[in-house]
Amino acid sequence: MNKTYQGWGRMRVPHYLIRDWQESDRTAAADVIREVLQEYGLPWQPEEADRDVIAVEAAYLAIGGEFWVVEFEGRIVGTAAYYPIERGNKAVEIRKMYLQPQVRGQGLGKYLLQQLEIIIGYKGYQEIWIETASVLKEAVQLYENNGYQRTTGVETKRCDRLYVKRL
């Protein structure tokens, strides 16, 4: 990471391209999130919990957050994002970290989480918060295995777990 970090840009991970979200990604990124939620029996809520995916520019980019997409063979197969929040001390919330089933189990989720943490720390944030649902067992395991501590205060209706990690 250099001292003039301006954003994620593009990075190749073997077989994957992780890059900043572009306006042309709106539908494909939303489709990935909707499909994964439905896979786990969770509702797609474009007017509530998922409105940020429809309005990435306002929900993330305009307030200092980032939204990334993961491509495999030219197709979007995953997403990961964060934005600053009022909760905590110099805090962000990681959101919309979803991977389609065919790309899970290869360490990509852990890699995305580590890269988010590096960039969040580089930007001077001190806490990372994550809300999730216990049915997302892989996500729960990922967070717990990477130093996130369970806490209280869930704000999103479909979520029942809240985690925090201090950097």
Rank of each mutant, 00 (worst) to 15 (best):
114 Q>P: 02
88 G>K: 11
91 A>M: 10
110 K>S: 12
77 V>W: 01
124 G>C: 11
112 L>A: 08
79 T>N: 11
128 I>C: 07
104 R>C: 05
110 K>Q: 14
120 I>Q: 03
132 T>R: 03
111 Y>E: 09
125 Y>E: 04
127 E>T: 07
110 K>N: 12
77 V>R: 01
106 Q>M: 12
103 V>K: 02
109 G>C: 00
98 Y>V: 07
124 G>H: 09
132 T>W: 04
90 K>I: 05
130 I>S: 01
123 K>N: 13
78 G>A: 08
93 E>F: 05
91 A>T: 06
127 E>N: 03
98 Y>R: 11
131 E>C: 05
107 G>H: 09
120 I>S: 01
129 W>P: 00
134 S>L: 05
83 Y>I: 08
87 R>T: 13
114 Q>R: 13
123 K>I: 05
82 Y>H: 09
95 R>M: 13
72 F>L: 14
72 F>P: 02
108 L>I: 06
75 R>M: 12
94 I>G: 01
73 E>Q: 15
119 I>Y: 09
123 K>Y: 08
123 K>A: 08
125 Y>A: 04
117 E>T: 12
102 Q>D: 12
77 V>C: 07
80 A>F: 08
118 I>F: 14
102 Q>R: 13
128 I>W: 02
87 R>F: 11
87 R>Q: 15
92 V>F: 05
101 P>W: 09
126 Q>R: 15
78 G>Y: 04
129 W>G: 00
121 G>T: 13
117 E>N: 06
103 V>G: 04
118 I>R: 14
120 I>L: 07
125 Y>D: 05
130 I>T: 03
117 E>M: 12
94 I>C: 06
103 V>I: 14
86 E>M: 12
117 E>V: 04
92 V>M: 06
74 G>Q: 13
123 K>W: 09
85 I>Y: 07
118 I>A: 12
100 Q>R: 15
76 I>K: 11
117 E>F: 06
104 R>G: 03
128 I>G: 01
85 I>A: 10
77 V>I: 14
102 Q>C: 07
130 I>A: 04
97 M>Y: 02
110 K>M: 07
109 G>E: 00
136 L>E: 01
119 I>E: 14
86 E>S: 13
96 K>C: 02
107 G>V: 04
124 G>T: 08
136 L>N: 02
